[in-house]
Design a binder for these strands. Structure first.
Length: 921
RNA sequence: GCGGAUGUGGCGUAAUUUGGUAGCCGCGCUAGACUUAGGAUCUAGUGCCGAAAGGCGUGGGGGUUCGAGUCCCUUCAUCCGCACCA
């Protein structure tokens, strides 16, 4: 019987499905293990060979854990809301729900062929009303909660109202938008609408006017993590800054916890570092600067309070509300022009133009609180409206940006720390002795900072402050294909739906474009009203809404009374292993942690952090092939001769190239213009292509579809080969040529079970010492390698073992059974087939991972490498227990040693027992 | 500029625990066997130089050590992330 992978794989995939082999339930007799993949957005293009890499790795780990006796939760679902489906709908008029359904079907087909151990009964889709009901529900919970900065915890809005009734907002320490102080009497005198406005400043989900990343081409607002290099991450369209009324999530309230929570996670350092940078904690002080001739003050944030004596001017961000107030009549035209100019610049222009120094003097002066000198107030776009207070005290001597600005506009530069040469450049380092700074003179920077902080507070000029770069998350998207907000408007007041009224589903429409007046697509829908009267919120939620708590829903996916039951949450708790791409390092992974912390605060989940261990799989790159057309001809020159000509490099489809040799006939048929192409071949008469490692993409003709690989070699070969390619975390190119190696291995493995006539042929005989050694070496290696996610070396170990066993002509059941079990996480189909052919009635998934016995691994003799001055020259086999002195004798008496030592004296002999020998001459 | 990672045969890579035989495994290549045929299968060889003896060899330079891919210093290259963050 031959290894008929097609038949075997189909059969077992059907069996597993029919017998619900991978369905899991809460089982208190077993320890739980939760393995999660980042669920995919089902795009129209389907899967290419790079997508399943992480899924295969997590599947191996899941199967391994199950063999070890864990109750493994390993679910899959779809991040089904999203922009591409909507853009496709705009073009074709097809409802996104329909195209999404089609794409999901295709994805599931492709995934099912790879033989994953998913419990599909737990599938979730973010676009399913039964799912997004709980997304909306959590949003409402956030709406009804505020963040108590003292307790670092979300609390119900009712506690806040009680406090306002009693004390106003003077005593409470809450994370909120800027709100003036008021006493209880003022609060109690407000009407409902006024109270609403105040409460909005405190809610964790709130609506406010803010400067947003507006992408005109997409017709929507984007979050910071959706903007890369000043253009939209999806599509690469320009993004500008715009003031808009938007729903937001007060994620900044959790900045501290999001930062400290990282410490105990088993994530890579680089990923944690990315999150730390994104949160961007910095310690310093907020200091007020008086302004000459008015009562206004400018509040600045600085990490270098020690340098205040060197502050010779101030800069306001162009967006700052103070700009208007502080601009003199004679400067107003120039300032207005500048502010308009700055506002209309795209993020990209601003970033690209960073060296180009611009700014305008407002005409006003601030008073340096320590030198009492008047210093000019400028506005310039190197100061960002969104960070700190949107205003800075500029210390040109010790900040390179301020320095460049001062030089450009000829502003005074006063050094206050010794060390640099301010004629040439600013001295930014935080070391040195203070000068020109009155009571700070002579102190080290560190001490000066401390002293100044104290001084600022005693003089009542400001206070210590920890500042975060993290912004509140903008939660509105002006799109159709997302979760509707459970909000309607009554006299312009946002009113939340009641929990019982959820889910609020999307109304139908046949036009998915924004309206002519710039309203979101939902604005087109007539009669979409609450209670027949009130308008709903027209924007929808962003992509990260649905993906923030999906891992929780898998624990209890069909529960229609709760996001997750207490019982399910208590059992499954958190994700033990999360595998996904690094592209979600700051987006999804930070929103999801925030979302989870909020649910923790309100008692829905028992774990403060959702993802205990996280592994980022590397990208599978494409391996492109090229042909070289000689300029102005239809003649193609082979790779090694190309430099004799002027040529154009042209991508060719990798599917018509084998080991870099071009299939001429297929190439000629590929495109009409190549039909009568001519070629300059190499000596071997073949056309050799060039190659390059690039991103896998259609336009580069280097996309490889897993379906084709499975068709040709089977899923087990695909799984093994993806792992064999290299370390999981590393990016590496896909090269189909190498796949033959693992395919040969599986065939060789198969033959271990059969005789020459193709009949199953297994021996009941007990294994001998050598056979035991071979299989136990494998058992040990596989366990250790899987634990440390070194799947590439595991595959190598399988190959070595199969080679050894076939040399030993070992067909003993005792040995091969163990091999089957340890191979089954990687190649479940062939393992299941041979498991059953060897007489088992139950699935190999229910087997037990064998334990290795170290007795079989120890040897009686050791092959000692004998080195001369550190260079190994020969090896010699010596009994393991032999004493050093005897080893020395044997080595020195060896002929090869004598040859080497001729005429030389031995200075020293180093013998490490059981390891090696080094002779120094 | 800051932060992180990575540099080993023609290619993908291995060398875990503790510094102890560098190149496991696979692709490719070479030769052979079988075959009507080979883009099938099997066997052997394959880091580089050299006929061999031997020498050299983990991006470069330096150091520690009996011994360094592994530790230290320095330098270069590539990739990723962040980037007027006060």
């Amino acid at each position: 019987m031959n290894y008929n992978f097609g038949e075997i794989e189909k059969k077992h995939q059907e069996n597993w499905k029919r017998n619900q082999i991978y369905k899991v339930e809460i089982d208190n007799t077993k320890p739980k293990f939760y393995v999660l993949d980042m669920f995919p957005y089902p795009s129209g293009a389907g899967l290419h060979v790079g997508h399943p890499l992480g899924y295969i790795a997590s599947d191996i780990y899941s199967r391994y854990k199950r063999l070890q006796g864990y109750n493994v939760l390993h679910p899959m679902g779809f991040d089904a809301f999203g922009l591409p489906a909507e853009q496709y709908a705009v073009q074709t008029g097809q409802h996104p729900a329909i195209t999404t359904e089609i794409n999901i079907k295709r994805y599931k087909e492709q995934l099912s062929k790879i033989g994953f151990s998913y419990d599909w009964s737990r599938e979730v889709r973010t676009s399913d009303p039964n799912y997004f009901k709980w997304t909306q529900w959590t949003f409402l919970k956030m709406f009804h909660h505020w963040f108590n900065t003292d307790t670092q915890k979300a609390e119900p809005i009712e506690t806040l109202i009680k406090e306002f009734e009693k004390n106003g907002n003077t005593k409470i320490n809450a994370t909120c938008s800027i709100t003036p102080h008021f006493e209880a009497a003022v609060w109690n005198g407000m009407d409902e609408a006024e109270k609403d406005v105040i409460l909005m400043n405190y809610r964790l989900a709130y609506r406010a006017k803010t400067t947003v990343n507006w992408c005109p081409a997409l017709g929507t607002v984007l979050a910071n993590d959706e903007v890369k290099d000043g253009v939209s991450e999806r599509g690469g369209y320009p993004v500008i800054q715009k003031d808009m009324m938007q729903w937001q999530l007060r994620i900044t309230a959790y900045a501290k916890r999001l930062l400290t929570g990282l410490d105990n996670l088993e994530w890579t350092d680089s990923l944690k570092e990315m999150q730390r940078n994104w949160i961007g904690r910095s310690e310093g002080a907020e200091v007020y600067f008086d302004i000459k001739d008015t009562d206004e003050k400018i509040l600045v944030f600085t990490t270098r309070p020690d340098t205040i004596f060197g502050a010779t001017f101030m800069v306001l961000a162009p967006e700052s509300k103070l700009v208007d107030k502080l601009t003199n009549i004679e400067n107003s035209e120039e300032v207005d022009q500048y502010v308009t100019y700055a506002k209309n610049r795209t993020e990209r222009e601003r970033q690209a133009d960073a060296q180009n120094i611009t700014g305008v003097f407002t005409g006003s002066y601030a008073i340096n609180p320590f030198t009492k000198k008047e210093i000019p107030i400028w506005t310039a776009d190197y100061v960002l409206g969104g960070y700190g207070t949107g205003a800075i005290m500029a210390v040109p001597a010790h900040d390179s940006r301020d320095y460049a600005f001062a030089k450009h506009f000829n502003i005074e530069i006063i050094p206050v720390v010794e060390g640099g040469d301010i004629e040439k450049e600013s001295y930014d380092a935080k070391t040195g002795k203070m000068i020109n700074s009155d009571f700070l003179n002579g102190l080290d920077v560190k001490d000066a900072v401390k002293k100044m902080l104290k001084e600022v507070e005693t003089r009542n000029l400001g206070k210590r402050k920890v500042n975060y770069r993290l912004r509140d998350a903008i939660f509105s998207r002006q799109r159709y294909w997302g979760e509707p907000f459970p909000i309607y408007y009554k006299d312009d007041r946002a009113v939340p739906l009641k929990e019982e009224e959820l889910p609020l589903t999307l109304p139908d429409t046949d036009d998915y474009k924004p309206t002519e007046t710039g309203k979101p697509p939902l604005g087109r829908v007539e009669n979409w009203l609450y209670d027949g009267k009130y308008k709903y919120e027209l924007s929808t939620m962003p992509g990260f809404a649905g993906s923030s708590a999906y891992y929780l829903r898998y624990m209890d996916p069909h529960n229609n009374k709760a996001l997750v039951s207490k019982e399910a949450d208590a059992y499954w708790q958190d994700v033990d292993l999360y595998i996904g791409g690094t592209e979600h390092a700051v987006g999804h992974l930070i929103y999801s942690r925030f979302w989870n912390k909020f649910l923790y605060d309100i008692g829905i989940v028992i774990k403060d952090e959702p993802y205990k261990k996280l592994v980022n799989q590397g990208m599978i790159q494409g391996r492109s092939n090229f042909v070289y057309r000689i300029k102005n001809t239809n003649k193609f020159v082979s790779f090694n001769f190309r430099n004799n000509y002027e040529f154009t490099e042209i991508h060719v489809d990798v599917n018509m190239v084998n080991n870099d040799i071009l299939d001429i006939e297929t190439f000629k048929k590929w495109r009409p213009e190549f039909a009568d192409a001519e070629f300059i071949f190499e000596e071997d008469g073949k056309y050799h292509c060039g190659y390059a490692v690039e991103k896998m993409s259609k336009s580069k003709y280097n996309v490889v579809n897993p379906d084709n690989i499975i068709e040709q070699y089977g899923a087990d070969t695909l799984r093994l080969y993806e792992m064999f390619l290299g370390p999981l975390e590393q990016s590496k190119p896909w090269d189909t040529n190498g796949i033959e190696g693992v395919f040969r291995f599986l065939n060789k493995f198969w033959r271990l079970f059969f005789d020459n006539e193709g009949n199953i042929n297994l021996s009941e005989e007990k294994a001998n010492k050598e056979e035991q050694k071979v299989i136990h070496t494998l058992i040990k290696k596989v366990g250790e390698d899987i634990e440390r996610f070194s799947f590439n070396t595991t595959v190598a170990a399988y190959m070595v073992c199969a080679g050894d066993l076939s040399k030993l002509k070992c067909n003993k059941l005792e040995v091969l059974e163990n091999f089957l079990i340890v191979l089954s996480p990687f190649a479940p189909h062939i393992a299941e087939e041979l498991w059953q052919l060897s007489g088992h009635k139950t699935s190999i998934a229910d087997a037990e991972f064998p334990k290795y016995n170290s007795v079989f691994l120890t040897e009686d003799t050791v092959k000692y490498p004998v080195a001369f001055n550190g260079k190994t020259r020969f090896t010699i086999e010596i009994e393991k227990d032999m004493q050093k002195s005897e080893i020395e004798k044997i080595i020195l008496n060896d002929l090869r040693t004598k040859q080497r030592l001729e005429g030389k004296t031995v200075k020293k002999i180093i013998i490490v027992q059981g390891r090696m020998v080094n002779i120094v001459i």
